[in-house]
Design a protein around this nucleic acid. Structure first.
Lengths: 212, 212
DNA sequence: TAGATTGTTAATCGATTAACAATC
DNA sequence: TAGATTGTTAATCGATTAACAATC
């Protein structure tokens, strides 16, 4: 607990699921939770959940009882960075971009899309999901002026790299890439790929194993 | 090559990126590709790519030369299941559902959304992305009648489990879940979670490490 | 031949799981 | 006290990386 523990990528990805479950328990009036209970819910091994909670929790769990839910929720939100206020821009107001702009949930995750950008003059000047759509020509200036550090790319495959290049030259630190392509970037920039093709690959693998 | 090699989940997720790169090379008129070239492009270790290609390729690579691109593309598409014809249904015609219905790329991945379902009477009877929107009441019957084995869930969090329950009772084999929640399903059903919260967790972890 | 790339076998690394003493 | 759950230390497992001989 006290010392700085390293949390693995995999564990980090399990946390949002735990968190949502904890919040539901809290709504139901529960006050404590144990690793076996969480493990049961998600079909995981108790020991795995125990390790995950040990890394996340700022206090030791109580033998026989478990962890205080409200405290654990706080700790998870802290670890997941939900308390931060990350201002972002989104580039590409197509159907996916529109869906993301319309999504109200990002604020909870500490993410705030402050503006959208598109190259289509018909879209520039409009508002989508309450966010202004600006010209792609204004992207670099906007990012620098407002100190934006995260860019969300939802343009078609063929324009993704050129948009990334603009972001790279705008003091951006991280890119959330929804275009199904690999972006070439300097190593100082973090690229998180949200590839449906990769997800489908897993689904396909599962299915094949299943049907044999 | 010849014997049945196990491909890891991680490797499977790298394949779509390799594949897209190969197709671009082919368009440029290239005929062969080597592991070092691919590794360089994606910032991976040569040996990792070499192992990946060895698992995927149906023929041995040629020392000094590499692999024939056209053959490698065929093999990858086969391994990734892009040659299959999986008919699917989508439930939840909100902004994300609409984006997915409008996306033309799924066919290439072997996925064909044949119908969408929603509980909103205003949406039922309309067409989105060329796909008919039917009543949620017709879901189970439709799946059974048409032998649908994959369901895509894009409903809000609070309805995801009840939709999953319907699918479970409709001979569905796999669920692609875009709702940010864990679904309780029998172990015979495969659930692939497309969680943006999990992706954001990774992004957040990266950013924190970066800023320290 | 020389050199680049291959496939294979072994070593390393990181994440998961097992075993078990500590504790309320 | 008895028993459930915790945290810790060690073992296992799977994926990545290293080393190297084979080959065109």
């Amino acid at each position: 607990m006290s010392s700085v523990k390293e949390i693995s990528k995999q564990a980090m990805q399990r946390l949002p699921y735990y968190l949502q479950f904890l919040k539901r328990l809290e709504e139901k009036g529960e006050t404590v939770v144990s690793s076996p209970l969480i493990a049961e819910k998600f079909g995981l091994k108790e020991i795995q959940v125990r390790k995950d909670l040990a890394i996340v929790s700022s206090v030791n769990g109580k033998p026989r009882i478990g962890f205080e839910i409200s405290k654990l929720i706080e700790d998870m939100e802290e670890v997941l960075g939900y308390n931060e206020k990350n201002e972002t821009v989104l580039i590409g107001v197509g159907s996916l971009g529109t869906a993301l702009l319309s999504y109200k949930g990002f604020n909870y995750y500490g993410l705030n899309i402050v503006a959208a950008f598109d190259s289509n003059p018909d879209k520039v000047g409009t508002t989508v999901g309450g966010k202004p759509v600006l010209s792609i020509d204004a992207l670099s200036g906007f990012c620098k002026e407002h100190g934006i550090h995260i860019g969300i790319i939802t343009v078609p495959l063929e324009h993704a790299q050129s948009v990334a290049d603009i972001l790279i030259n705008s003091d951006i630190k991280a890119i959330w890439n929804f275009a199904p392509t690999y972006l070439t970037t300097p190593s100082s920039i973090l690229v998180q790929n949200e590839s449906m093709a990769a997800s489908l690959a897993i689904l396909s693998k599962h299915l094949k194993e299943k049907l044999h």
